[in-house]
């Protein structure tokens, strides 16, 4: 759903915890009450990993799209199935849509109301993605937000903002940088950053963050 469509699904349903999510919360409640764990320390440990793990899955999806036109076409048509074919599936049955950057259009994903995020391909959301400033400003002033991430796009490039929901989550397929024609999919995946797949970064041929 593109943001200016204003077809929010957020209000249509309440939250749901899977058996595992609820059990982990129950354990956390008991162990915190007993003074055996510190929730802040749990968050710190979780954060240690959140930037490292999940995005590798997404990077492989991007690299495959860059190197296999058939896969890119499948990804365009049915991202949920194409991504599932690599073994990356959300446990909650959420649908995926891949949005492709082009020389004319840059895509940016956000969840304005909470922090819906394509976990299966990007892992855990970064802290800033969950924070109110990004959620509010990504829609109102995407160009300004991108500039703060060090991404300055020419005025001629249109920015599309996609608002994630619990049912539909987005993955940005960044443009393949020039000068990478000799690289195989595995090497290409190493260049693809988490931010590039959220839309707050671009992919460079040298593998720099920006």
């Amino acid at each position: 759903m593109q943001h200016d469509d204003h077809h929010h699904h957020h209000d249509d349903h309440d939250n749901h915890f899977s058996e595992m999510q609820a059990r982990v919360k129950a354990l956390e409640t008991v162990l915190t009450q007993k003074g055996l764990i510190d929730p802040a320390a749990i968050d710190a440990i979780v954060e240690t990993y959140e930037t490292k793990i999940g995005p590798r899955n997404g990077a492989r999806v991007v690299a495959k799209a860059w190197t296999e036109p058939d896969f890119a076409e499948w990804l365009t048509r049915d991202a949920t199935a194409a991504i599932a074919s690599l073994g990356y599936t959300g446990r909650q049955g959420e649908h995926m849509r891949a949005v492709f950057n082009t020389p004319e259009t840059h895509n940016l994903i956000v969840c304005t109301l909470c922090s819906c995020y394509p976990w299966a391909v990007l892992g855990l959301p970064p802290v800033w993605y969950k924070a109110p400033p990004y959620r509010a400003r990504a829609v109102i002033d995407p160009r300004g937000v991108l500039a703060e991430f060090g991404v300055t796009l020419p005025e001629s490039i249109k920015i599309r903002v996609w608002d994630s929901t619990a049912e539909l989550r987005y993955l940005v397929i960044p443009e393949r940088p020039s000068g990478t024609e000799h690289l195989d999919a595995e090497r290409l995946a190493d260049l693809v950053t988490r931010d590039a797949m959220i839309g707050t970064g671009l992919v460079s041929s040298s593998g720099d963050v920006r």
Binding site: V24, K25, L27, I37, I42, I45, W119, G123, L124
Partner: peptide, 15 residues
């Protein structure tokens, strides 16, 4: 980890 609860379960066990 595939989902946040997995990391939380891991982190609790670590603690």
């Amino acid at each position: 980890f595939a989902e946040p609860w997995q990391a939380e379960a891991f982190a609790m066990t670590v603690q």
